[in-house]
Each structure stands twice: as structure tokens, then as C-alpha cells.
Design a protein around this nucleic acid. Structure first.
Lengths: 183, 183
DNA sequence: AGTAAATATATTGCCCCGATATATAACGAT
DNA sequence: ATCGTTATATATCGGGGCAATATATTTACT
């Protein structure tokens, strides 16, 4: 999934400026997609050039003029055809797990802090997703499902973290000096 | 986490060539990190220039000569200091969830195929992680934990997919023609 | 009066990924 | 016997993405 598809996807839900597209991605897709202005603005220029989107400048009182982009018919077709040929891949990047891989090299205060930060992070993600699913009754089934998916993963991981953290810290310390467990 | 840290991390576990580093990342970190030759080789050149790794050419019978890289003392220090100052972040990129977001635009045969592919993918990931954790009794506690983490997430998601898929397909169809549910 | 935060667009530089090129040899199939 | 595939091994290129930064305006709080 590249920035073009992300932009077309947002514009499929309604017209928007580059700034609004970024905000929409953060709000609707934050738990499984990310992007940046450095990707969005050049992409919108390219999509305009390709005729997949069009825009009109909208002067606003008390705000900078914004370019409001809209999907063209060609853009809608292109987006649909891409959806039909996109493989359902997933990738997970975790600096947290990388750090845990080398926990035996770190002092246990550091490991404890990492586990606490990660637990807090999972909890706050879970809270956000649950708030959205509870407060938005008009979501499409597909959108609701993406939230359920994030909630299921976060709940399971939070449970693991809460049940396993203290034992893990003890195990890491025990493995550091093998004699300790033999006496 | 960038390619430099990934390479230093692998070399911290033992000397290796660029090719072996890629294999090691695929085997040990595959469920939470990824990289490519296009990143590894330039990075190893840069790390050599910075004095964080050194290498010697090792001629092999019946195999191309390889450059075996090793951490220098400066490299070990640098890696440790980076570990100490790295934030435990996580990011998830899912084309599967992006597609589900637009499930109402796709024919339900396509949605069914996507759900089945995703279920199969989660199952195969789970199988791999469980095989590793069962067949490797000498893992450090931290390494074992990264596997437990992946297993917990995959189990929970697999359960969601198995329990929710058929109902979801019905809901998507029902939302397409709102009258259908009112008769 | 000052300053932080929000709205809005755009560029730059560094880094990363996928594809490709090159070379050798083991292995299995026909 | 040879053909194709897989594995070992290094390296580069182009397109793309991300974080940081620049610029400008206005609201809102201090």
C-alpha cells in the first residue's frame, strides 16, 4: 500500500486538502497505516498530473488558501482496480521486541521501564479503539471490523504483558548468573 | 530501528557475512523486523568506515569468497548505548485492514477470499513461532518472550477471524442494500 | 504583549526496499 | 548428460518514503 492508494482511499470517502488527508489517515487508519507530508504533497501533484484527482483552490477567511482535492472518474476506477489486485499482506515493526531480544545486555531497571512503557502504550491504543467503536454507531461493517481486529490484538498482548512481565524480569536476571539458580 | 542497529545486533551474536546477516534477520527477527540486501551492503560499508565493524575476506572452496564482519570494541559500545536510548515503539502496516476498510466496494467473493488468505497467513505464522519455541530449549528469556508475544497476537487474531468472518460477510452484504434487513 | 498551538503547503536530505546484475555450484529431474 | 532450480555471495540503481524544516496566518491562553 503506497501513498497514492492511501490518498485515493481518503478521497473516496470525501473531498479533502493535503492537510485534511493526513489528519484523516491519522484518525481512521492510525493503527495500521501511516504517512507524512513529505509523501502526501508530491503524491497529490503526481495524481493531479495523471488525471486521477482534480482540485480547486478554496480561499478562506482567516485561514491560508487551501487546495481541495476530489477523485475524478478515472481515479475512482483506478482505485477500485487496485483494491481488486492488492494482496492482503501485513507487516509488524517493533523496536520493543528488538530491545527484548537483547534484554540480557541491559540492566533490569531498564528492562522494567521498557515493559512498563509498552504496557502503557498497549493500554492507550486499546482505549482509543474502544472509544471509537463505542461512540460511532454508523461505521460500515468493514470499518468496525478493523477496530475489532486492533482491539483483539491489543487485549491479548496486554494480558500477556500483565501476566508475564515480573516473571520475565526474574528469568533474565537468573540467566545472567547461571549459578544463582543452582544453589 | 535502522539497518545499522540490525546489523550490529546480529554481529553481537556472532561474526557473519552480509548474506548471513540477512538470513539471520529472517530467521530470528522475521515476525517484527525486515531488511534487504540493498540496505545491508551499503550499511556494512558505512559501519566499516566508521570503525564499528571490521572484516576479513574468507576464501572458500567451491563457494564465492565472503567478507566476514565482526563487531569492534567501538561497535559493541555504540550498540549498547543505542539500546539504552531506543524508545520501545511499534508500528503495524496492514494492507489487509486497508482492504477491509473498503470491503463495501468489493464483491463478496473477493472479501471472502481476502478473509481466507488472511486466516491462512495468521495460522502459518503461528505454526512457525510455535515450532521455534518448542524446538529450541536454549533460547534466552528475552528471545523466548518475543516468540510468546507473536504467538499471543496471532492466536487472538486467528480466533477473531474464525469466529467473525461469516457474520462479517453477511453484514457487508446487508449494508449494501439497506432495505434487505427491513423486510 | 508574548507565545504556544492549530491550520495549511511545500521542500530537502537521508534512508530504505525491490529489482536487477553477476558469478559459482549443488541438487534433482528428465 | 544436461537442463532448470535453488543456494551461496556481493553489489548497485531507481523510485519512494520519512523526519525535519521553512513559511505564513490566526486563535487562544498567559
Amino acid at each position: 500500500m503506497n501513498t497514492s492508494q492511501l490518498c485515493l482511499g481518503i478521497l473516496c470517502l470525501g473531498d479533502a486538502s493535503g492537510y485534511e488527508i493526513k489528519k484523516a489517515i491519522e484518525q481512521a487508519f492510525s493503527h495500521f497505516q501511516a504517512t507524512s507530508y513529505g509523501s502526501i504533497y508530491p503524491t497529490l501533484a503526481k495524481l493531479t498530473h495523471q488525471g486521477l484527482v482534480s482540485f480547486h483552490e478554496q480561499t478562506q477567511q482567516k485561514r491560508p488558501t487551501k487546495k481541495v482535492f476530489a477523485l475524478t472518474e478515472a481515479g475512482r476506477k483506478h482505485f477500485f482496480q487496485t483494491l481488486m489486485s492488492t494482496e492482503p499482506t501485513e507487516q509488524h515493526r517493533s523496536d520493543f521486541l528488538f530491545l527484548m531480544m537483547f534484554a540480557h545486555l541491559l540492566p533490569n531497571e531498564q528492562n522494567r521501564a521498557l515493559l512498563e512503557k509498552q504496557t502503557a502504550h498497549l493500554q492507550s491504543e486499546l482505549d482509543i479503539l474502544e472509544r471509537i467503536i463505542n461512540e460511532c454507531p454508523t461505521l460500515t461493517p468493514g470499518m468496525r471490523f478493523t477496530l475489532e481486529y486492533g482491539i483483539a490484538a491489543n487485549r491479548a498482548l496486554l494480558q500477556l504483558m500483565q501476566g508475564r512481565s515480573t516473571a520475565l524480569l526474574r528469568e533474565i536476571d537468573a540467566a545472567r548468573s547461571p549459578t544463582a539458580s543452582c544453589e
